[in-house]
Simulated scan of single mutants.
Amino acid sequence: MDRMFTPDEARSLMPSILEETRELVAARADLAEIAFDRQTAGSSALGGIPELKALEARIEEILSGWTGQGIEVKGIAPVLVDFPSLLDGVSVRLCWIEGEPGLAWYHRTDLGFAGRRPLA
């Protein structure tokens, strides 16, 4: 069975999610810049293949850490994660997207992001 989070359990993980998201966003930007520079100019001040591979590995490490905790990663540009939960007996996802200061939204599992509502 997949892990189910209470809102308090999910919120307790948010400090580490926010910190790792800052790292992921920086790695994502560096990765894009290196790839673009290498394609257009042949090289990048940020590095080459070793740096690309290191950034990819770090992103994968962060994402694997989240999924290993039962968090569902829905996207990385922007970062979007869901925490499976039950609210009043209904299957929902506690939902956080990059840029939000904390976990404050949910949506029914069957509705997805378009059905987001504020958490009480």
Rank of each mutant, 00 (worst) to 15 (best):
D2L: 11
D2Y: 12
M4A: 10
F5L: 06
T6P: 03
P7D: 03
A10K: 07
A10I: 01
A10Q: 08
A10C: 00
R11W: 01
L13Q: 07
L13R: 13
M14L: 11
P15T: 07
P15C: 05
I17C: 06
E20T: 10
E20V: 03
T21A: 09
R22P: 02
E23D: 11
E23G: 07
V25T: 09
A26H: 12
R28N: 14
D30W: 13
A32N: 10
A32S: 15
E33C: 04
I34R: 06
I34K: 09
A35P: 00
F36V: 13
D37H: 14
G42P: 04
S43H: 15
S43W: 15
S43A: 14
L46N: 01
L46V: 11
G48Q: 12
L52G: 01
A54G: 09
L55D: 00
E56R: 15
A57I: 02
E60G: 09
E61N: 09
L63P: 10
S64Y: 08
G65H: 08
G70F: 02
G70W: 08
I71K: 09
E72M: 07
V73K: 00
G75T: 06
I76Y: 08
L80E: 12
L80F: 10
L80Q: 11
V81A: 02
P84R: 04
S85L: 06
L86R: 11
D88S: 12
G89N: 02
S91V: 09
S91D: 14
V92R: 05
R93Y: 13
R93M: 14
C95G: 02
W96F: 03
E98R: 10
E98I: 06
E98F: 09
G99W: 06
P101Y: 06
P101W: 10
P101T: 09
G102D: 15
A104S: 12
D110N: 14
L111T: 15
L111M: 10
A114H: 10
A114S: 14
G115H: 00
R116C: 04
R117L: 13
P118M: 09
P118H: 11
L119C: 04
L119T: 07
L119S: 04
L119F: 07
